[in-house]
Design a protein around this nucleic acid. Structure first.
Ligand code: SF4
Ligand code: SF4
Lengths: 133, 133
DNA sequence: ATAAGTCGGACTAAATTAGTCCTATTTAAG
DNA sequence: CTTAAATAGGACTAATTTAGTCCGACTTAT
């Protein structure tokens, strides 16, 4: 129905890696093990760090570590930390900056789209990565 | 979480219009009433016709008509008829043509992604437009 | 005959996403 | 106290996908 971004795919791979190792791991380690473009993964890790899903240590022997247990990390949170726009339509965005659809006034499916958005967030987005990985 | 395409939005608007009118309606009529680019809507209607959701009449006084009741039309079906690719990831595609991900062999999240795909299809995709519109 | 419609392919434009590159900062270790 | 391995983050380019346009053919009620 709808495509998941590479950023999210990479993020999930990395979270899985961190969960399995239980240790601090570097982006190099993760990108090598999963064939992910290193620089891109670096961005992904930084985003998840800012969101508070993971923790970082700078400098030599630095890296990332899970800050939450897999049971606490929802898909919603991962997606939200990694994608620019997470709403199903422009108007369903929580961020009013992004809600500037030109046909907003005449649109007859705004409410349905909100419903869909809720359903999606609740039934799929609230899954945790422990249920998935 | 994931964005719905304009084609699907337009398709839903059109189906709503057809459901409400109960009559045969032209793309012009629908595109005018909803401010949808006419030529684009025409494509959308053609796609839904091919899928068997709607019915068409050519020539003067032609147009489209619902072929199924709103209770019979699932979101999945609408999306499937209108979007190129409907799978959440490349590898989750039912169409093997589209399943050529370069990292398939080493990927550690294939199974999770399949699960996600199923969950999405079942809990959101199986909603009918009568539940929505 | 004509005008109002669908049909469908090819094309262009716009937007989004993926990926790269470069520089700065932090810090363990020699 | 220097070096190398790491994160931090901004700017940029490339690739892909989606949105939208255009044109010519066919169909049919009037
Ligand atoms: S207002 Fe209507 S057309 Fe605009 S984004 Fe929302 S649903 Fe889509
Ligand atoms: S194989 Fe892995 S990386 Fe490739 S599309 Fe499937 S989930 Fe994504």
């Amino acid at each position: 129905m709808l495509r998941i971004s590479k950023r999210v795919e990479y993020g999930l791979m990395a979270l899985q890696y961190l969960a399995k190792s239980g240790q601090v791991a570097t982006t190099r380690e993760i990108s090598d093990s999963s064939n992910i473009p290193h620089d891109l993964l670096a961005k992904v890790m930084q985003s998840m760090k800012r969101n508070g899903i993971i923790d970082s240590f700078q400098g030599v022997r630095g890296g990332y570590r899970l800050l939450l247990s897999p049971e606490q990390i929802t898909l919603n949170r991962v997606v939200f930390s990694l994608d620019e726009e997470t709403a199903i339509t422009e108007c369903a965005s929580e961020n009013p900056e992004h809600a500037t659809c030109a046909m907003f006034d005449t649109c007859t499916i705004k409410v349905p789209m909100q419903k869909l958005q809720m359903k999606l967030t609740e039934s799929v987005g609230n899954m945790t990565i422990s249920e998935l990985l």
